[in-house]
Amino acid sequence: MNFYAIRAIYLFEMARTGRTLLQSVVSPVISTCLYFVVFGGAIGSRITAIDGVTYGAFIVPGLIMLSLLMQSITNASFGIYFPKFTGTIYELLSAPVSYVEIVLGYVGASATKSLILSFIILATAGLFVPLQIAHPLWMLLFLVLTAVTFSLFGFIIGLWADGFEKLQIIPLLIITPLAFLGGTFYSIEMLPPVWQTVTLFNPLVYLISGFRWSFYESSDVGVGVSLAMATLFLATCLVVVWWIFRTGYRLKT
């Protein structure tokens, strides 16, 4: 195992975050604060508690998950796309590194950044609403699983994309709608029965529900199902990444 290479890639990516602190950290924190002010404070005060949890507190896990998903995808996709765009990918391809090491470096850094951001948002949320975390280890497990899975997903997007527009398409046109419709701001029990069934085809429902359960012990689907689905997404992404490197898809001609 080339640990020096993993460390080099990891630190290089972390340093990139340091250079873009406003975009990477401050911007998502401000967006989340605005959600708390608008939905938690202004509108939320007129909404009844859900399963005994105030609306402001109810949306915290969903908002963290929303940021975690978006940042994991953005960080990882940009991280691998940029060397492709500038041409510096030649160095990565000519280095004595295995695909596993490349993925560990890029996905590890992306997941780390997303997790740090999640904790910052969690701490920020604590300033607006009273927080309780019933199962901290489960919360951590869901956070790490989601950060790694969606960083892998972002990595795949970065490898697939051949332009900046494609980098944006999936986060904006697929992930954001799925996160909004996946129970970030409501319990799916609040939907008509037909839509409850339709919603179960949205994979993000399981992540948000499981994560919320770790806070308030109330969920839309069983926590075991959520965990199984999260693991399934992770496995799917791993298989796709393995296939990409095995075939050299969009990396080697």
Partner: peptide
């Protein structure tokens, strides 16, 4: 093809690490 935003020292040190040294 260079990492435009990196310093000379960092980019050369990065290469050394990438090649397992």
């Amino acid at each position: 093809t260079t990492d435009a935003f990196e310093s000379v020292w960092n980019t050369v040190s990065f290469s050394r690490g990438l090649f397992g040294k």
